[in-house]
Amino acid sequence: MIFFKKSIFVLMCALGTAAIAQNSDLGAWYMYFGNNKISDKFNFHNEIQYRNFDAGADLEQLLIRTGIGYDLTENNNNILLGYAFILSQPYIRGEKSENIEHRIFQQYITRQKFGRFFVQHRYRLEERFLQDDFRMRFRYFLGLNIPINNKEMLPKTWYASAYNEFFLHLDSPVFDRNRVYGAVGFVINKNMRIEAGYMNQIQENRNRGQVQIGFYNNIPFTKN
């Protein structure tokens, strides 16, 4: 319970930081997350994120991420090795440019439950192969799901979701960015859910908002 209170405190502090920051503009992220069992211990992670400068078709970034994970305990404490391809199209002095990044990453995810509160921690190390550079980055993600009309995350359950994630370079400058998120989700069935919310990202003293819609698919590839 003490650990849970500390987790909530971290989330609230991050929300307060995001509220203070200035110079905000709004984008939209459309996301698909697949986490599919391929055996009792192994899982296949697959993910696509289509990120826009606005709600339309002005592409900011296309991210494709995949990996193979292994559960150290039953359905928990997952370690994963993965690869990501990132196509970015930022505006530089009013003109669009194009950058491609290849990324290898290692991560560890652990989950706990405190009453109605479902908590997730993710620790991720990334080796980023940029077009003209190589960088390493550490990310820590603290997420929370709270079912609303049921005590568990059962089919046809509405839930509230929140997370905070910070990014640190392993060289200077150390701070990269921080993300704070809040959403409402719906559990479609035991393997699928959908979520819609708002994420605020602070990077280099810039505060940018993103509307997010995410679909989560956990349909196993095994008969069991």
Score class of each variant (00 low, 15 high):
residue 4 F to H: 15
residue 4 F to K: 10
residue 4 F to S: 13
residue 7 S to F: 09
residue 10 V to N: 11
residue 12 M to D: 14
residue 13 C to Q: 11
residue 13 C to N: 13
residue 14 A to M: 04
residue 18 A to I: 04
residue 23 N to Y: 06
residue 23 N to A: 10
residue 28 A to E: 03
residue 31 M to F: 05
residue 32 Y to E: 07
residue 33 F to W: 12
residue 33 F to C: 00
residue 33 F to P: 00
residue 33 F to K: 03
residue 34 G to C: 00
residue 34 G to F: 02
residue 36 N to C: 05
residue 38 I to W: 14
residue 39 S to T: 05
residue 40 D to Q: 08
residue 41 K to R: 15
residue 42 F to T: 05
residue 43 N to A: 08
residue 43 N to L: 11
residue 45 H to M: 08
residue 46 N to C: 05
residue 49 Q to W: 06
residue 49 Q to H: 13
residue 49 Q to S: 06
residue 50 Y to E: 01
residue 51 R to C: 12
residue 51 R to I: 13
residue 53 F to M: 14
residue 54 D to V: 11
residue 57 A to R: 00
residue 58 D to T: 02
residue 59 L to C: 05
residue 61 Q to G: 00
residue 62 L to H: 01
residue 62 L to S: 07
residue 62 L to K: 00
residue 64 I to S: 10
residue 65 R to H: 12
residue 66 T to D: 04
residue 67 G to L: 03
residue 69 G to H: 02
residue 70 Y to L: 08
residue 71 D to T: 01
residue 76 N to T: 01
residue 77 N to A: 10
residue 77 N to K: 08
residue 80 L to Y: 00
residue 81 L to Q: 06
residue 81 L to H: 02
residue 81 L to F: 13
residue 82 G to I: 03
residue 85 F to I: 07
residue 86 I to M: 07
residue 87 L to S: 14
residue 88 S to G: 12
residue 90 P to T: 10
residue 91 Y to K: 14
residue 92 I to D: 06
residue 93 R to Q: 14
residue 97 S to I: 15
residue 99 N to M: 15
residue 104 I to G: 13
residue 105 F to R: 09
residue 107 Q to G: 01
residue 108 Y to Q: 00
residue 110 T to M: 10
residue 113 K to G: 05
residue 115 G to L: 01
residue 115 G to V: 04
residue 116 R to M: 07
residue 117 F to C: 08
residue 118 F to C: 02
residue 120 Q to F: 09
residue 122 R to K: 02
residue 124 R to N: 11
residue 127 E to M: 10
residue 127 E to R: 09
residue 128 R to N: 12
residue 133 D to L: 03
residue 135 R to D: 11
residue 136 M to G: 12
residue 136 M to P: 02
residue 139 R to L: 05
residue 141 F to Y: 15
residue 147 P to K: 00
residue 149 N to D: 13
residue 149 N to S: 07
residue 152 E to A: 07
residue 154 L to S: 15
residue 154 L to W: 12
residue 157 T to R: 01
residue 158 W to V: 15
residue 160 A to T: 14
residue 161 S to K: 06
residue 165 E to H: 03
residue 165 E to V: 02
residue 166 F to I: 11
residue 167 F to E: 10
residue 169 H to R: 15
residue 169 H to V: 06
residue 170 L to P: 01
residue 171 D to K: 14
residue 172 S to Y: 12
residue 173 P to R: 06
residue 177 R to L: 06
residue 177 R to M: 05
residue 177 R to I: 00
residue 178 N to S: 11
residue 180 V to C: 00
residue 183 A to N: 03
residue 186 F to N: 06
residue 187 V to Q: 15
residue 187 V to Y: 03
residue 188 I to T: 09
residue 189 N to I: 11
residue 190 K to I: 07
residue 192 M to A: 08
residue 194 I to G: 01
residue 197 G to H: 04
residue 199 M to W: 03
residue 200 N to C: 09
residue 200 N to D: 13
residue 201 Q to G: 01
residue 204 E to R: 00
residue 207 N to G: 03
residue 208 R to Y: 09
residue 212 Q to F: 04
residue 215 F to G: 04
residue 216 Y to F: 13
residue 218 N to H: 09
residue 218 N to W: 09
residue 219 I to N: 10
residue 219 I to F: 07
residue 220 P to I: 04
residue 221 F to M: 08
residue 221 F to C: 02
residue 221 F to S: 05
residue 222 T to H: 08
residue 223 K to H: 11
